[in-house]
């Protein structure tokens, strides 16, 4: 770290230096506070409601105690499955394009579009999925929710894929091509395979991001009070259920909302830790 010399600096300058540096440190401390507060509250309220019934039982009508989110957990699983089936191949495909064929103006256009799509509010993507799927099919469905979330996965997956593919040394590609291996095999069996763990972490990251999305599901998967495992029917989802329970007037439902939030955070933190673990093994370079 760079350090300034300590000789003969005027009091005013020393004072402003001290003030500014402590301001910077204080700002960082203030940033950490809400995280601890939020995590603490969610854990405090969430753990008390955590039991087996939460995972195995259906929601109970208001007024009755107990009940769980079994249908929402299954629904979330179904939606995320469809989202992954759409988002992962398209994201990786786009990433390969960007890294292997897109070092030019076309690539820049795609790169910019991916960034734009990344910035589109999730609710707008939900509305698009509603207009494209729900309106044409005439009913809400798990399928339409999966499409909305799948679209949201593409930019994250493609940009991380591009990044890790670019880290594979050029000499590897040259060696493969020099052996007479066609380019597509070079890309798939050599370049992509070398960068695989980096790509997987990108997928985990995108997955963690969409797992908690609520807004795009409001008018696609819609939510469902009952057990449903059909992709063509509306299904419940954990984040959606948290929202519905949170704005309800019932204490029992609030309790379920906190537990749902706790479970959701655990799932996402798990994905993040995996991501960290993989990056710390040097597959993806640290920017620091």
């Amino acid at each position: 770290m760079l350090k300034p010399s300590k000789t003969s600096v005027s009091l005013r300058r020393r004072l402003s230096n001290g003030l500014a540096l402590s301001g910077i440190t204080l700002a960082t401390a203030i940033v950490v506070v809400p995280l601890i507060l939020i995590m603490g509250t969610v854990a405090y309220h969430g753990i008390s409601g955590l039991n087996w019934a939460f995972f195995t039982q259906m929601p109970k009508p208001p007024g009755e105690t107990g009940g769980g989110m079994a249908n929402a957990l299954v629904g979330s699983g179904m939606i995320l499955m469809i989202a992954s089936a759409i988002g992962i191949p398209m994201g990786i495909g786009t990433g390969i394009f960007l890294a292997e064929y897109g070092r030019n103006a076309y690539g820049d256009v795609v790169r910019f579009t991916a960034d734009v799509l990344n910035g589109v509010p999730s609710i707008v993507i939900g509305l698009t999925a509603w207009a494209l799927v729900v309106v044409t099919q005439g009913h809400f469905s798990a399928f339409s929710g999966g499409i909305a979330l799948g679209i949201m996965m593409i930019p994250t997956v493609s940009r991380t894929t591009e990044e890790v593919l670019l880290m594979v040394p050029q000499s590897v590609r040259e060696a493969a091509l020099g052996l007479g291996i066609p380019q597509w095999r070079t890309t798939l069996s050599v370049v992509v395979r070398t960068a695989m763990s980096g790509i997987v972490t990108g997928i985990m990251l995108a997955f963690a991001r969409i797992a908690g999305e609520t807004a795009p599901l409001m008018f696609t998967a819609f939510g469902n009070q009952f057990w449903s495992t059909s992709f063509r029917e509306p299904v419940a989802a954990v984040p959606l259920q948290i929202y519905v329970y949170a704005i309800s007037p019932f204490d029992e439902w609030h309790r379920l909302a906190w537990t749902g939030a706790f479970v959701l955070i655990l799932l996402i933190a798990g994905a993040m830790i995996l991501f960290r673990f993989a990056t710390s093994r040097g597959i993806m370079r640290e920017t620091t």
Binding site: V42, A208, G212, P239, A246, A261
Partner: peptide, 13 residues
């Protein structure tokens, strides 16, 4: 981590 917390949980809090 702050960035990874879902929006609905911020709302709940």
């Amino acid at each position: 981590l702050l960035a990874a917390i879902p929006s609905v949980i911020y709302g709940l809090w």
